[in-house]
Nucleic acid binder design. Structure first.
Lengths: 155, 155
DNA sequence: ATCACTTGGTTAACATGTTAACGAATTTTG
DNA sequence: CAAAATTCGTTAACATGTTAACCAAGTGAT
């Protein structure tokens, strides 16, 4: 019999394993997985550069998480933050030459991870998987809204 | 087109939402989700009592995580740790009267979460989902083993 | 019996994420 | 235009998990 609780356990397992693998793979570059995730996104999605807020939205992690990862990346010389002249609130994030040098290595690490994940899984299965995952995640979003609503109603 | 990266994003989203919902639901009991997870396990799986090591295995979280959650639960009067007379290393974890009192409320919170998750998802779909999830997670376990092996080979 | 190994649990250090509160810059609105 | 609201980023506090190092108790082999 299936226990829904296994879904959580599996999700945890998967994320933990993936993080571990990426951390291991990026250790020679002195990069953590959190940093790697951001760099990868900049490599593959960023046309030129991105504001931090865009990273927050596109990677779906919180502002402080992005802020601190960028602190570290800047420290290590992988990115630059420069003020946007047209809106001085936004910090545009740009990859440095150094980052571009190691880019392929980072992409290779992630591609390796993705390939490992997909062993024995077809495109169709992945599609179905993501479909369900999405529905579940939407269910939660809805549940959370209702919860907030009830809180407000109770107040 | 599907991007494998979405799997991670969805998994993160799901775990985050679930944690948030449970935290909200258990706040009146002064319990966090980490604590609730353990209590739920004790309620539903524990015949009488469990050693901490068993919690570690069955919940698949690290020893320190269990240790600290139990510290807090003991502090709050929800569990007791007693030395096993037959093996004085083992701390047997037992629910207190107080825990049993709030048991139904905790189980209700989780059942509500599970019900919300399953909205519009059939048993068959869940089964397929878990099947794939399991395969993926096994893939990672294998990848990690290989990685460790390569490390050793390199040394 | 003793010495080496294993096992259960704790502590310390750190990784990674979150929310809340804030400051500065921009936008909206009356 | 000036006051109010919003937006972008940072900082502080904390939640939750991990690995590494350790102690104390059991186990086992010579």
């Amino acid at each position: 019999m299936y226990d829904i609780r296994d879904v959580w356990q599996r999700a945890h397992q998967m994320l933990r394993s993936a993080r571990k693998i990426i951390n291991e793979e990026l250790r020679p570059l002195n990069l953590s997985s959190a940093e790697g995730n951001i760099l990868l996104h900049l490599f593959t999605q960023g046309q030129g550069e991105l504001g931090q807020e865009q990273l927050v939205e596109q990677l779906d992690i919180s502002k402080p998480a992005v802020s601190r990862a960028l602190d570290s990346l800047e420290q290590k010389g992988y990115v630059l933050r420069q003020e946007d002249p047209s809106d001085r609130r936004v910090h545009r994030v740009r990859l440095t030459e150094r980052a571009r040098t190691v880019g392929p290595q980072i992409e290779r690490a992630y591609n390796q991870l993705y390939a490992a994940a997909m062993q024995g899984i077809s495109q169709e299965e992945l599609a179905a998987f993501l479909h369900l995952f999405t529905r579940m995640s939407e269910n939660f979003t809805r549940a959370q809204k209702n919860q907030n609503k009830e809180d407000r109603d109770a107040a």
